[in-house]
């Protein structure tokens, strides 16, 4: 049969919803993140560290009689758990797109979804899961420490502290997803990202007072949790990190929409 003489009958394109592909990837990624062992390990490490440290300090507070302020101990806990959280969160973020590189990505991106939609869905899903989980864990730790230890925490202070931490994590997640999308593999991506992230924190610790440092931020967090903070300053910090997150996501959206997969 001559192919040229037998044109394909025009098929009616089924009704479609242009936002469905975005929500399909978003929903699937939410589920994948919740089921991933990396995410579960992070949550477990944070819970075990918080419970263990909290019980230890509770024992000292009640049995030995040494006063342990909740804000002080939360600050100390965050000094350790914060680094672990940064490491895990960045790993989960970088893995979002680089983990699907290959035929799994092929089988998704060869369908009716644009690159921009795919990247945005991945970015938003990881941001949502990681930030919500961190906020819930933080709220749980703060509540528990408030009742177990010397209660010097305020609701407004805790809300401000969580807001700042969440904004910082949002920036980390956005740039993590972008680095994962633009790199050729999870190992390369996460190595690069950790080098920049932890290298940057290390370098900041050598800079003088006006520049932010890890120790300085933890000290500020303790006073914030007690309710001593400048709302304008907190808003500015949250705004800056939200902007950094948006720029990271924007760079990823543009870069990934042109990249070979």
């Amino acid at each position: 049969m001559d192919a040229a003489t037998t044109p394909t009958a025009p098929t009616t394109t089924p009704r479609f919803n242009p936002l469905l592909p975005y929500f399909a990837v978003f929903r699937t990624d939410l589920r994948q993140t919740f089921h991933s062992w990396l995410f579960r390990l992070w949550v477990m490490v944070v819970i075990v560290a918080a419970v263990g440290y909290g019980l230890y300090k509770f024992g000292i507070h009640r049995e030995v009689g040494l006063v342990q302020s909740a804000s002080e101990q939360t600050g100390v806990l965050l000094g350790t758990v914060g680094v672990i959280t940064l490491a895990f969160v960045s790993l989960v973020a970088v893995h979002a797109i680089s983990g699907e590189r290959g035929t799994v990505a092929d089988s998704i991106l060869s369908r009716g979804i644009s690159r921009r939609q795919y990247f945005a869905a991945k970015w938003h899903a990881r941001t949502g899961v990681l930030l919500a989980t961190f906020a819930v864990l933080s709220a749980g730790v703060l509540t528990a420490y408030h009742y177990l230890l010397e209660p010097d925490l305020t609701f407004r202070g805790c809300a401000a502290g969580i807001a700042v931490a969440v904004a910082v994590l949002a920036a980390v997640v956005a740039w993590g997803v972008t680095v994962g999308a633009m790199s050729n593999g999870t190992v390369i991506g996460v190595t690069l990202f950790w080098l920049v992230l932890f290298g940057g924190l290390f370098l900041l610790s050598f800079l003088p007072s006006p520049f932010p440092s890890g120790a300085g931020l933890l000290a500020a967090l303790r006073t914030t949790l007690r309710g001593h903070f400048d709302l304008v300053r907190i808003s500015q910090v949250v705004g800056v990190f939200t902007l950094v997150a948006a720029v990271g996501g924007g760079v990823g959206l543009m870069g990934y929409s042109k990249k070979d997969v």
Binding site: T13, F16, P21, T28, Q32, E100, G102, T103, V104, D106, S107, L109, S110, R111, G112, I113, S114, R115, R116, Q117, S257, K258, K259
Partner: peptide, 21 residues
Amino acid sequence: HPNAADLRRRIGYIPTNPQFP
């Protein structure tokens, strides 16, 4: 192009050794 989702909506693709989530 990479963002031509409407064109890909008219294509059915099977890669070599297909893998699934």
